[in-house]
């Protein structure tokens, strides 16, 4: 198996994730797209770690899984809060940052 196979798979998933972040209006779906991006990064780390015979790639993949879990937890709590305040999780409604 070629390394580039895994790298290309990772790139494709990453780009699909980016598209999802940009094209989705529903906050939960944006979070799902972010999960795709994080997974794409993971496969890259593990593939390179395997190539170089180093365990570091694997360890960092584990760290990313942990960080992703934290991110989803807090992210969904925020979505819930937004929903409670505005009865909507449409990200286009959340524009208080507007200058």
């Amino acid at each position: 198996m070629l390394l580039t196979n895994f790298l290309m798979l990772s790139s494709i998933l990453f780009c699909i994730g980016v598209y999802g972040v940009l094209a989705r209006r529903n906050a939960v779906m944006v979070l799902m797209s972010i999960e795709l991006i994080l997974n794409a990064v993971n496969i890259n780390l593990v593939a390179f770690g395997t190539i170089h015979g180093s365990i570091s790639g694997h360890v960092f993949a584990l760290f990313i899984i942990a960080v992703a879990a934290a991110e989803v937890g807090v992210g969904l709590a925020m979505v819930l809060l937004i929903y409670r305040n505005r009865s909507s999780i449409d990200l286009d409604d959340v524009d208080l940052l507007k200058g």
Binding site: I43, G49, H58, A61, A69
Partner: peptide
């Protein structure tokens, strides 16, 4: 396939 069985297991459990 990459030989990272522990990560595969973690992936299933956590994700």
């Amino acid at each position: 396939l990459l030989g990272a069985e522990f990560i595969a297991a973690t992936q299933l459990l956590v994700y």
